[in-house]
C-alpha cells in the first residue's frame, strides 16, 4: 500500500487547526537549502546559546568535521559533513574554463565533493512524538510547530522511539525529553529562530511554510536548469509518511547520504487501520462468543 492510500490520522488538515487552535497565524517553518551551507556551525552555537542547551560531548569523532554526531536532547541543530566523489551532475568546475569537462576537473583530488547540511527537528505535520505522548507535554503550537512543555513532561520516553528521525531524546540530568522548539519564544515576539538569524548564507530560511515551499521549488528549478540535476527537495510535500514537514530541505544527494531516512513514516500512521482491524477482530470475536452463547442455550426452547 502506498503512503498516499493512507490519509493518516487527520486527512491532511492544518496541524494547528487540528490541535484546536481556532485562530492562528500561518504555519511557520524552516527551509534549509544545503547547497549554500558552508558548514560554519553558527546554527549549532546560536541554538545552544539562546536555549541554554548544555554542551553534550567533547569527542573527536573523525567523522569529517562533524563532532556533534546527531540530534538529541542536547543537540537541536546538527551539521553533517559528507566527503564524497562528486557525481557527474555536480557543479560545473570547469564551466568557465573551456577545458575538459568532467575530466581532470578538480585536480589532484579528482572530483572530490564535500556536502554540508544543518539537520533539525522536522516539526512533522503528523508528529509521532506528539501522538504518543501520554501526558500532553508535547503540544502543537499556534504556529504549527511541535514543542515539549518541560514542566509537564514526566520523562517516560515514549516519544523517543516514536520519532522516525531520531530527533528527540532525554537528558540525563533532568530526565526530561527535549528537542528543537523552533524558538517558540522568539516567534511569539515576531523574531526568527536563533539558527536562522545566525546563518550567514541564508542556508536556513525561516518563514510561512507555503512561502518557503514556493521559494524552494523555484530554487530547485534554477539549480536543475543550471545543470545541477543532483538537487532535490526532501520532506517538502504533503504526500509523504509524515504528511510533509514543517522543516524541509534541499539536498544534493539521496537522504541516506546525509543520515536521513528516505521514506519516513510516522509510527502512528497506521493507527486508524490498526484500530479498525482490532475493532473488526473484536467484533468477530464478540460475534463468535455470542453465537456460541446463543447456540448453547438449548434449554431456552
Amino acid at each position: 500500500m502506498s503512503v498516499t492510500d493512507r490519509p493518516g490520522l487527520t486527512g491532511g488538515a492544518d496541524p494547528a487547526e487540528r490541535a484546536g487552535w481556532a485562530e492562528h497565524p500561518p504555519r511557520m517553518g524552516f527551509f534549509t537549502d544545503t547547497s549554500v551551507c558552508i558548514g560554519c556551525k553558527a546554527c549549532e552555537v546560536a541554538c545552544k546559546e539562546w536555549n541554554a542547551v548544555p554542551e553534550d560531548g567533547l569527542t573527536l569523532t573523525g567523522m569529517s568535521f562533524d563532532n556533534t554526531i546527531g540530534l538529541s536532547a542536547s543537540t537541536w541543530r546538527h551539521v553533517a559533513f559528507i566527503e564524497q566523489q562528486a557525481p557527474e551532475s555536480a557543479p560545473g568546475r570547469d564551466r568557465d574554463a573551456g577545458g575538459d569537462a568532467g575530466g581532470d576537473a578538480g585536480g589532484a583530488e579528482d572530483g572530490l565533493r564535500w556536502l554540508m547540511s544543518s539537520d533539525v527537528c522536522k516539526h512533522c505535520s503528523e508528529a509521532g512524538c506528539l501522538d504518543v505522548c501520554p501526558t500532553g507535554a508535547l503540544m502543537r503550537t499556534e504556529f504549527g510547530t511541535v514543542v515539549v512543555q518541560d514542566d509537564v513532561c514526566n520523562g517516560c520516553g515514549y516519544c523517543v522511539p516514536a520519532c522516525p528521525f531520531g530527533v528527540i531524546g532525554r537528558r540525563e540530568d533532568d530526565g526530561g525529553a527535549h528537542k528543537c522548539t523552533l524558538c517558540y519564544d522568539r516567534l511569539g515576539v515576531g523574531m526568527e529562530p536563533a539558527c536562522a538569524k545566525a546563518c550567514p548564507t541564508d542556508s536556513i530560511q525561516f518563514g510561512p511554510l507555503d512561502e518557503l515551499r514556493e521559494r524552494a521549488q523555484a530554487r530547485v528549478s534554477d539549480l536543475q536548469e543550471a545543470g545541477r540535476t543532483d538537487a532535490r527537495l526532501y520532506l517538502e510535500g504533503p504526500d509523504d509518511g509524515i504528511g510533509g514537514a514543517g522543516a524541509f530541505f534541499l539536498l544534493l544527494d539521496e537522504p541516506e547520504v546525509y543520515g536521513l531516512p528516505p521514506d519516513p513514516v510516522v509510527s502512528t500512521r497506521s493507527l486508524p487501520r490498526m484500530w479498525k482491524h482490532a475493532g473488526l477482530a473484536a467484533a468477530g470475536v464478540g460475534a463468535m462468543v455470542l453465537t456460541a452463547f446463543l447456540g448453547s442455550r438449548t434449554d431456552v426452547r
Binding site: 558548514g39 557543479p91 560545473g92 564551466r95 583530488e109 564535500w114 556536502l115 554540508m116
Partner: peptide
C-alpha cells in the same frame, strides 16, 4: 587543502 571554501568554489586548485 580542500577546505569549506573549496566546497563552495567552482574550482579548487591544490
Amino acid at each position: 587543502r580542500f577546505s569549506r571554501t573549496s566546497a563552495m568554489a567552482d574550482r579548487h586548485v591544490p
